[in-house]
Computed example of a mutant assay.
Amino acid sequence: MSAFDSGLFGQQGGYAVRIMDLSGGNGADPVETIRGFQTVEHANAFARRYVRDSLERCRTRGMTPADVVQAWFAFGEDAEVLGGAEHAWRSAAELNDFASRPPAESEERNWRALDPRRDEDAEEEEE
């Protein structure tokens, strides 16, 4: 068990989000692990928006909520918060709600605004 899986990473002042390809293209391995979230709330918000965006990319006109969920499990990407233990957001908690209603605003899908790597890029540009 890694420090991420045991929750130790969160106790050390940071959290991570693991992105999983549900299509199986990567097998059981994550597509990527994004580090640098300073709070569980930040990691949760990122993961929630990431999954929301992934689900919306699977939605096409005329699909039922069940069809949307089925398409997401076949082609989408899930996000798992590492280090948050019982406070970590899980896609299963909101997946059916997401499928039942398209987002009211684009903010619900804008995971890029919450990406901690964005801060790193800005620091590099300043140098």
Rank of each mutant, 00 (worst) to 15 (best):
R49I: 08
S54M: 11
Q38Y: 07
G62M: 08
T33D: 13
G13S: 07
R49N: 08
F37V: 05
V17E: 03
D21G: 08
Q11K: 10
V40G: 06
G36N: 05
F9L: 14
V31K: 15
R61E: 15
F37M: 10
V51M: 11
G27Q: 07
M20F: 02
S23E: 10
D53M: 13
A16V: 00
I19R: 14
V68H: 05
V40C: 15
R52L: 02
Y15Q: 04
L22S: 05
D29C: 09
A47F: 03
A43W: 03
A45G: 06
G13A: 06
P30Q: 07
V31C: 07
V69Q: 15
Y15E: 06
D53V: 01
D67Y: 04
T64Y: 12
A47Q: 08
G62Q: 07
P30I: 09
G36E: 15
G10W: 00
L8N: 14
T39L: 01
R18P: 00
C58Y: 03
G62N: 04
G10Y: 00
R52K: 10
F46N: 02
R48F: 03
V31P: 02
G25Q: 13
V68T: 13
L55Y: 08
S23G: 09
L55V: 15
S23A: 13
M20I: 15
V68S: 14
I34H: 10
A16L: 00
E32W: 03
V51A: 15
S6E: 11
V17T: 04
Q11Y: 07
S6W: 03
T64E: 14
Y15I: 02
E56S: 08
R57N: 13
R59A: 11
M63F: 06
R57Q: 12
R18F: 00
S6A: 10
D67K: 12
D53Y: 11
V68L: 04
L22T: 07
P65T: 01
R52G: 01
T60S: 15
P65Y: 00
D29V: 07
I19M: 10
E56Y: 06
P65L: 01
A43G: 07
R59N: 11
P30R: 09
D67R: 09
D53P: 00
T33M: 08
G62F: 02
G13K: 01
G10S: 02
N26F: 09
G36I: 05
R35T: 13
L22C: 04
A43Q: 11
R61P: 03
G36R: 04
R18E: 15
M63I: 03
G7P: 02
D53T: 01
A47D: 12
M20N: 13
G14E: 15
S23P: 05
V17P: 02
M63R: 09
E41H: 14
Q12V: 05
G14R: 01
D53I: 00
Y15P: 03
F9W: 09
T60G: 10
E56P: 00
H42T: 06
N26P: 02
G10I: 00
V68K: 09
Q38P: 02
S54I: 06
R52Q: 07
Q38H: 12
F37R: 06
A16N: 04
F9S: 15
D5R: 13
Q12G: 02
M20W: 04
G25R: 14
S6V: 03
R59D: 08
I19T: 11
E56C: 09
H42P: 01
A16Q: 00
P65H: 03
G13D: 12
G7T: 05
G10E: 05
L22N: 11
I34C: 12
L8M: 08
G62Y: 04
Q11R: 12
V31G: 09
D67C: 02
